[in-house]
Design a protein around this nucleic acid. Structure first.
Length: 587
DNA sequence: GCAAGGTC
């Protein structure tokens, strides 16, 4: 029997081939320069296998040409206009390869990622192969990690494609196109007519880009509407001569009440303290504490860290990681998974870092007993492991080097131990009011030695005994003001989108780029931090949609959440894709 | 000229 295996991307085709063939295979070129066809015998199922791949989705959706002219077609017709699926521009060679290979086999086995998009890509592949060979048998291999035992198991126990999941994706695809095209044309034409300065600009609407814009505008409005408030607090401090250094050291104590917004009340407390100014130590607490090592790295985390620590935009970070992946230095950089498979081979990867001049010694220490299995996060996309270095890269430069370094240090840190410390809390009573001071002694730095991005340092307190009394050297009623919230940073925006389900790990950065390209949002540097500021156009669009008076504005994330919920319903068989567009036409 | 989702 001849079997054609099709993976979602070339790298997976190669891995599957390695495992199933045991390394004995021959390679043929395909009409596409990225894709190879691998042939070998698979005696376990008495078959001859050919393994190839696509590169993600093969099809693109668009309206029939009768609907392509913006002027001559009412945008609202687009909600009902027929949509055609055709092979994407640039993917013709991939489709031709499938066509040729399918003719040679009896069975098609789909090896796309085991997620919704993977199921849909599988259906696209099946469609193309069936056109080439109508009676081809279609099977689905299910695997959640590139591990020999799982891959063999998947090859020997194939299942069926899950058409419900595929249909859910198709429903979303059509919905996004209809809504996006209709609203984009409508608002572009309307606004271009009203405002000369917008002539020639596309004013796009998208179900992801608008909530993204909404977050930026909403924070901007909060900043603008902010009115600072005065508050008051009692500040207590004791100056002592530090025994070892002979220097004066001031130990500040924090008021347990924090700060108060009414001056008279704060003053009353303060006067009471002044009448009884002797401070008494009520309690000295010592306890072990630790600073947790970082979780295994996801795409969203990498983008946040990159923006915050390396000052590289989310889009650029992903591009750099992609390039490092293609060179074989990194695992697949688009992943939601923050837990490693129990069988993951950490040691062989740590070994590869032992040669590095900067962190090689740390890697060696991990090999010699310093290793501890990484923490397990809550997310698993069942398709890819957390981002980790797969080879040592010694000759990188510039931002590539910095990104690789962050990922590698983070990997080594996650394989190390939590930092351990000793925390001291001094509780003090003064005039009936409670104050406290906290000190920290770092006992074991552990992961911190390889991960300079986390700060945790000693804060030494002088010795205090329980029931000890002292006269504070400072006791003041201080005034402060609430501080204005800051504009949104790129890292904040990535977090908000992730939390609200706007976009995916692979697309969040693109949506941010889109609202910048559309001139809805500008980047503004303040010191070393990049903030996002909405333009007049961006603010106007959001205000416009808010004013329409829907209970859920199109600039809010709820609409996307609803689409997501309905996709889950399709996956679970409670709805069909035919329900979807009609539902949305009501508004 | 419109979207969002894969991946190169």
């Amino acid at each position: 029997m001849r079997v054609l295996c099709v993976a979602e991307k070339p790298s997976i085709a190669r891995s599957i081939t390695q495992i199933l063939s045991g390394g004995q295979f021959s390679t043929r070129n395909s009409p596409n320069k990225y894709i190879k066809n691998f042939d070998f015998d698979y005696p376990q199922t008495n078959s001859q296998f050919t393994v190839t791949s696509v590169t993600g989705h093969l099809l693109d959706h668009d309206f029939e040409s009768a609907y392509s002219n913006w002027q001559s077609c009412d945008p609202f017709i687009l909600f009902d206009a027929p949509i055609l699926a055709k092979v994407k521009k640039g993917s013709e060679t991939i489709a031709r390869n499938l066509n040729q290979e399918a003719r040679r086999v009896q069975v098609l086995m789909i090896w796309t990622d085991c997620d919704r998009e993977g199921e849909n890509i599988g259906a696209e592949i099946a469609g193309i192969c069936r056109k080439a060979k109508a009676n081809i048998t279609v099977r689905r291999a299910r695997f959640s990690a590139i591990i020999a035992q799982q891959i063999h198991n998947a090859a020997q126990n194939p299942v069926q494609l899950d058409m419900a999941q595929s249909n859910a994706v198709e429903a979303r695809t059509l919905l996004d196109l209809r809504i996006g095209a209709a609203f984009t044309r409508f608002q572009s034409l309307q606004l271009q007519q009203r405002f000369d300065q917008l002539k020639g600009d596309v004013i796009s609407y998208g179900p992801c880009q608008f909530p993204t814009l909404g977050f930026v505008v909403s924070r901007y409005n909060q900043v603008k509407a902010f009115v600072p408030e005065d508050f008051w607090y009692i500040y207590l401090a004791l100056t002592r001569i530090e025994e070892t250094t002979g220097e004066e050291e001031e130990t500040p104590f924090t008021w347990r009440r924090g700060h108060l917004f009414e001056f008279e009340v704060a003053l009353a407390f303060y006067e009471h303290v002044l009448e009884n100014p002797t401070a008494r130590v009520t309690k000295v607490t010592n306890k072990n504490t630790k600073k947790w090592k970082p979780l295994p790295l996801t795409t969203v985390d990498l983008q946040k860290a990159g923006s915050r620590l390396l000052k590289i935009s989310p889009k650029t970070i992903l591009d750099i990681a992609e390039h490092l992946y293609q060179q074989g230095f990194l695992s697949y950089p688009r992943t939601e998974t923050d837990q490693y498979d129990p069988e993951f081979n950490f040691m062989s990867l740590i070994e590869k870092q032992a040669a590095d001049p900067a962190w090689g010694q740390f890697a060696t220490n991990l090999q010699n007993g310093g290793f501890q299995a990484p923490r397990r996060g809550k997310n698993n996309d069942k398709a890819h492991p957390p981002i980790h270095p797969t080879a040592h890269a010694g000759n990188l430069a510039g931002d590539e080097k910095r990104v690789y370094e962050y990922i590698t240090r983070r990997f080594l840190a996650s394989c190390s131990k939590d930092a351990l410390g000793w925390e001291t809390t001094i509780d003090v009573d003064c005039g009936g009011e409670a104050f406290y001071a906290t000190g920290l002694t770092v006992r074991e730095r552990n992961y911190l030695d390889v991960f300079p991005y986390d700060k945790w340092s000693n804060k030494i307190l002088p010795n205090f005994e329980e029931d000890e009394e002292f006269m504070p050297s400072v006791c003041e009623l201080k005034e402060g003001q609430t501080t204005r919230p800051s504009l949104l940073t790129e890292a904040d925006l990535v977090s908000l989108m992730d939390k609200n389900g706007i976009g995916t790990d692979a697309t969040i950065a693109q949506h941010i780029q889109t609202i910048i390209d559309r001139k809805y949002v500008m980047e503004r540097m303040q010191g070393a931090t990049k903030y996002l500021v909405p333009s007049t156009l961006g603010i106007g669009l959001v205000e416009g949609y808010n004013d329409v008076g829907f209970d859920r504005s199109l600039s809010r994330p709820e609409m996307r959440r609803e689409t997501e919920r309905q996709m889950v319903q399709i996956c679970e068989g409670q709805k069909t894709k035919a329900d979807e567009p009609r539902d949305h036409q009501r508004w």
